[in-house]
Computed example of a mutant assay.
Amino acid sequence: MIKNCPICSSKRDVYFKATIINKYEVSYLYCNNCGLLQTEYPYWLEEAYSSAIADADTGLVARNIAISKRLACIIFFFFDPQGRYLDVAGGYGMLTRLMRDIGFDFYWSDLYCENILAKGFEASTTTNEFCAITAFEVLEHIYNPIEFIQKSIKDAGTSTIIFSTDLFEGNPPKPENWWYYAFNTGQHISFYQARTIQFIADKLSMFFYSYKTIHILTYKQINHHILLRIMAGRLGNIGYEYVRKRMNSKILTDHKNLLRNL
Results as ranks from 00 to 15, higher is better:
Ile2Trp: 01
Cys8Leu: 07
Phe16Val: 07
Lys17His: 09
Ala18Met: 05
Thr19Leu: 12
Thr19Ile: 15
Ile21Thr: 05
Lys23Asp: 11
Val26Glu: 07
Ser27Glu: 15
Tyr28Asn: 02
Leu29Ser: 03
Cys34Phe: 02
Leu37Trp: 07
Leu37Thr: 10
Pro42Ala: 14
Ala52Asn: 13
Ala52His: 11
Asp55Cys: 01
Leu60Phe: 09
Ile65Gly: 00
Ala66Asn: 08
Ile67Cys: 01
Arg70Cys: 04
Arg70Gly: 06
Arg70Ile: 10
Phe77Ser: 12
Phe79Tyr: 14
Gln82Asn: 15
Gln82Tyr: 12
Val88Leu: 00
Arg97Trp: 11
Leu98Arg: 08
Leu98Cys: 09
Leu98Gln: 02
Asp101Trp: 03
Ile102Cys: 01
Trp108Glu: 01
Leu111Ala: 12
Tyr112Asp: 13
Cys113Pro: 04
Glu114Trp: 04
Lys119Pro: 00
Gly120His: 00
Glu122Ile: 00
Thr125Glu: 10
Thr126Pro: 03
Thr127Phe: 05
Phe130Gly: 05
Glu137Asp: 14
Leu139Cys: 06
Glu140Ala: 12
Ile149Asp: 08
Lys154Thr: 14
Gly157Asp: 05
Ile162Glu: 08
Phe163Lys: 08
Ser164Gly: 03
Thr165Gly: 10
Asp166Ser: 12
Leu167Lys: 13
Lys174Leu: 14
Tyr180Asp: 07
Asn184Ala: 13
Thr185Asp: 14
His188Arg: 09
Gln198Arg: 15
Ala201Lys: 06
Ala201Val: 07
Lys203His: 12
Leu204Arg: 02
Ser210Thr: 14
Ile216Leu: 02
Lys220Ile: 12
Gln221Val: 10
Ile222Met: 12
Leu227Val: 01
Ala232Pro: 09
Leu235Val: 12
Arg244Phe: 00
Arg244Lys: 15
Lys245Glu: 05
Arg246Cys: 00
Lys256Arg: 12
Lys256Pro: 00
Leu259Gln: 10
Leu262Ala: 09
